[in-house]
Simulated scan of single mutants.
Amino acid sequence: MKKAIKFISVLILVFATMLTACSGNTDKTVSETSKTDSVSKTSVSNISGATKLDLSSIKGEGDRLDKILAAGVITCATSPDFAPNEFMDISSGETKYVGCDMDLAQYIADSLGVKLEIVPMKFDAIKAAVTTGQIDMAIAGLAYTENRAKNMQLSDLFGNTDADEGQGVVILKENADKLKTADDFAGKKVLAQNGSVQLDLTMEQLSKADCTPIADVNNGAMEVMTGQADGLTLDLAVAKVLVVAHKELAISDFGFEYESKGNVIGCTKGETKLVNALNMVVKEVNDKGLYKQWKDKAIELAKSLGVEVNN
C-alpha cells in the first residue's frame, strides 16, 4: 500500500513538472499557456456554499467585473505546485486543481454567481498574465509586496495563517547538522521559485549562497533529493508537507526574518470595481475563518495523496 501511495506521489510530481516545465522567456510561457488552457482548466460552480452577493452597490473603475458577469465565468491563474495552497489531485484519473487557494477561488465564483475556470501556469508567468489582462485574477500564494502593488490591483489580505509558519530552507536530512546557520550556506546552491518572496529572502538573507531561481517547486525538491542543489527556500507550511512526503528531506534550523500578514489576489491594474467585489468576499472569508478551515482540509488531502509515508 505504501509503495502504491508513493507511486501516486511520484506521478503527481512528474505531471506537475511536465505542466510547468522551465522556460527562460516569461512572455513565451504565457503565450504557450494561453494556447493550451482550453484543455487544462476546470469549470465548476455552486459547490462552496457561498451566498451570491448583491453587487448593485459596487463602485470603481474598469469593466472587467461587468464582463465576468456577462460571460458567466471568472478565470483564475495559479501555479499548482505549492501544496497546501494549490496542487493537483489526479487520484480519480482526471486532473483536479485543489488546495485552500482553489477553495477561495471557488467561493469567489459562487459569490459572484459565475463558473470558475482555473488556468494553471508557471509562477513566474502569472505576473505577465495579470498585467496584460489574459486572466481575471490570480490566486497563487501571493504575498503582498510593493512591487506587486505597483504592477497589479491587489485585494485586501486574507488567510493570515502563514504568519505563524514563516519561511525556511528544505535540505537533505543527512545535512541537517551541517546547514544550520546563514554562514553554513555560504557557497551552497539554494533554490527559490522565480518571482517569489522566497527568492527575495534568499538573495537578501543568504547572500553568500549561490541563489538560483527555478520555475517549479517540485523540480526544486527533486534537485535537492538528487544532490544537484543544497537547499530549497519555501514557505514553512509547504515545506512541512514536502518533508513528510520525502523522508530524506528535512527543514534547516536556519530561519528567515520574515512576518507575513497574509496573501492577496492579483488583478489587472485599474480594475478597482472587480477588486472591490473581491474584497467583499475576502471580508466574509476572513470574518468566518474559512481560509484556515480550507487550509487544514488541504493538508489532509495532500497527505491522503501520498504525503504520509512514514514507517
Rank of each mutant, 00 (worst) to 15 (best):
A4L: 11
I5A: 12
L11A: 07
L19H: 03
G24S: 08
V30D: 00
T36H: 09
S38I: 13
V39A: 15
K41N: 13
V44G: 02
K52V: 15
I58Y: 11
G60E: 02
A77E: 02
S79W: 05
D89Q: 01
S91C: 09
S91P: 04
T95K: 02
V98A: 05
Y107G: 14
V114T: 13
K115H: 13
L116S: 14
P120F: 07
A129V: 09
T132E: 07
T132R: 03
Q134A: 12
I139R: 08
G141L: 05
N160I: 07
E165Q: 06
E174K: 14
T181R: 09
A182C: 12
D184R: 09
D184T: 08
K188L: 03
N194I: 14
S196W: 07
S196I: 10
L201C: 00
L201I: 00
Q205F: 05
T212W: 03
P213N: 09
G227E: 06
G227R: 08
A229Q: 06
K240N: 15
K240P: 01
D253Q: 06
F254M: 08
V264G: 04
C267R: 05
T268G: 00
K269A: 07
T272C: 11
T272K: 11
N276T: 15
L278V: 13
N286W: 05
G289H: 08
I299Q: 14
